[in-house]
């Protein structure tokens, strides 16, 4: 009898002791939480994309509840979420206009010259560190292995004909692709922006012309033609001031290489055709 009873007592004793200790600890070390934090968290989409600059939706909700940052940082939730969060915090929301990602390259497979057959790892991060910095002759252009496609949580960016193209209807402005792109090609633009420069090559026109049929040659016709004076040339690339631009489209019309384009006219529903380098070579 004792041989059963004693072990029972010992283990039970340790268990009860541990239980008491934990019970005491949970009281003593209780963490007081702002009740608003939970409500705020429920408003947020839960994508944990990090677009707000915090480690995830939980962290952002905590920071808002603590009053450290304003509402409306969530690009994914947009205005709707900002309004809901503002109601909880008792402030007015002033979420800016919605932003979408934009890839500044149009050097598709047929337009941009390739330097060689690339057999390496199928990732932009890897292909961008080979000597010369690119598999294309253009050091600035899109590599087309789709690191951004992998990074996107919303299926809003795809590789089309060798370059990344953003689906503007699906993009929620979380900036995940911007972090992922080793070429720093992707930036945020206002969803209302009418016209953009589809090139990032800042070298002089002659050099660009040799390596990419679609690249900006830096002629500056756009900046001279613009009736609003919204275009300035910087580093042989046009820079558009969207605050001044009224979307007349004259620049896009006059651009000799068709690198300035009306964004609305560019297709948005696209099929994913990630570059498969190896089968290409086998052909």
């Amino acid at each position: 009898m004792a041989s059963i009873f004693i072990p029972f007592l010992i283990l039970g004793g340790i268990g009860i002791l541990a239980g008491l200790l934990l019970g005491f600890a949970s009281k003593k070390f209780a963490q007081e939480e702002d009740p608003r934090q939970q409500l705020l968290r429920e408003c947020l989409p839960g994508a944990n994309c990090g677009g707000c600059g915090f480690a995830g939706c939980d962290a952002y909700a905590r920071a808002v509840a603590a009053g450290e940052v304003p509402v409306g940082r969530c690009g994914v939730g947009g205005k709707e979420t900002a309004d809901k969060m503002a109601a909880i915090m008792g402030v007015s929301s002033d979420a800016g206009q919605p932003m979408v990602a934009f890839t500044a390259c149009c050097g598709t497979k047929d337009k941009a010259e390739r330097r060689f057959h690339y057999y390496g790892t199928s990732a932009c991060r890897e292909a961008s560190v080979i000597p010369g910095g690119s598999i294309k002759s253009c050091r600035y252009g899109c590599l087309g292995f789709g690191d951004c496609v992998k990074a996107c949580l919303f299926d809003a960016i795809h590789i089309k004909n060798g370059i990344a193209v953003v689906d503007r209807d699906k993009c929620r402005g979380c900036r995940a692709c911007i972090e992922a792109c080793p070429k720093h090609l992707i930036r945020m633009i206002s969803k209302e922006a009418a016209v953009e420069v589809y090139c990032s090559n800042c070298e002089r026109g002659l050099d660009v012309k040799d390596i990419c049929k679609a690249g900006c040659i830096g002629c500056g016709i756009c900046s001279r033609q613009c009736p609003q004076k919204a275009i300035t040339m910087q580093n042989d690339l046009p820079v558009i001031d969207h605050a001044l631009c009224d979307g007349c489209g004259l620049c896009a019309e006059k651009c000799p290489v068709h690198v300035l384009r009306l964004i609305k006219e560019e297709g948005s529903s696209l099929k994913d055709e990630r570059v498969q380098m190896v089968p290409d070579v086998v052909k």
Binding site: P7, I10, L11, I14, G15, A18, G19, L21, L22, A25, S26, K28, F29, Q31
Partner: peptide, 24 residues
């Protein structure tokens, strides 16, 4: 009884340490 005793002790200890770290 070492197996079951160790499991008990380690589980309780980890729980306790987690609470402690969370607070401090």
């Amino acid at each position: 009884l070492y197996t079951i005793a160790f499991i008990l002790v380690i589980a309780a200890l980890v729980q306790f340490v987690e609470m402690f770290i969370r607070k401090t």
